[in-house]
Design a protein around this nucleic acid. Sequence first.
DNA 1: GAAATTCGGACTAATGCGGTCCAATTAGCC
DNA 2: GGCTAATTGGACCGCATTAGTCCGAATTTC
Lengths: 144, 144
Amino acid sequence: MRLSSLADYAVVMMTACARHCGGTRINAGQLADETGIPLPTVQKLVSRLSSAGLLRSIRGAGGGFKLARPAAAISLAEIVEAIEGPIAMTSCVEQGRHDCALEGSCSVQPHWPVVNKAVRSALADISLTAIAGPPIPAFSVPAS
Amino acid sequence: MRLSSLADYAVVMMTACARHCGGTRINAGQLADETGIPLPTVQKLVSRLSSAGLLRSIRGAGGGFKLARPAAAISLAEIVEAIEGPIAMTSCVEQGRHDCALEGSCSVQPHWPVVNKAVRSALADISLTAIAGPPIPAFSVPAS
DNA sequence: GAAATTCGGACTAATGCGGTCCAATTAGCC
DNA sequence: GGCTAATTGGACCGCATTAGTCCGAATTTC
């Protein structure tokens, strides 16, 4: 019941992007600086996030990233799913997996989708704006 | 976002106990037989479950286990917590852990308790009776 | 007193995960 | 038109948590 640290990092990175919102692009190096996450890890995460449609990437010189959608339209559930795959408590609900010995005689199995939906909607109700920090300091300049 | 297979097993075992409800004791061997879970693993799990107060154990010859409370009064959240510890999405919310580089400047941290409560209540709303299978065949005899 | 059963801890193997690096592609700039 | 800077995507490796097993001690019944 704990999300992987990569997913945790992804949430932190997305909030950092949200603070820089206004359309400003930010590259992987800056992002690593601000969040304290090692650069190679940032690279791996932005790769997954942009292929999931949460970030829009501009490559080449002067390139970088920005949110593909307004922060209010991005939920925690989407970020987690982009990194960890579909939210499912057990592996037996994924189709194509048949490594459970009970398979079919299991009285618990039909109830997992209900649990999964409950958990997922709990995460889907939390938008990026809700966790990005109070007012968005888009134009604020750090004291340093 | 996936629970460990031990927690998964624990849920299956608890539902098996719930079906044998009526006060009948069931020993670890029978439980392993019914669920298909290897015996040593069953032993480890019942140990944790009974020390968490979910199962009541009677040792000695003819001993065994039974539910400490009616199935309706036991929730999924309790079972998961008995095996995996407190439900928390990130490790930074546990007191005593200070291994996060951001610590204090992190704008996401104060929002995790809200997420944790949302997820936990989703699991707490699901009782053992809801997943133990339709009618409880307390006195039914398998065809074999 | 002997047999049966739980209890608790220690130990081992392996799967998965976090993390790093490198080659390829693409866009801006001189 | 060539060069530089930046993202992209994949392969790779070491570590850590976890699953699973086993054994000795305690306890109750027959």
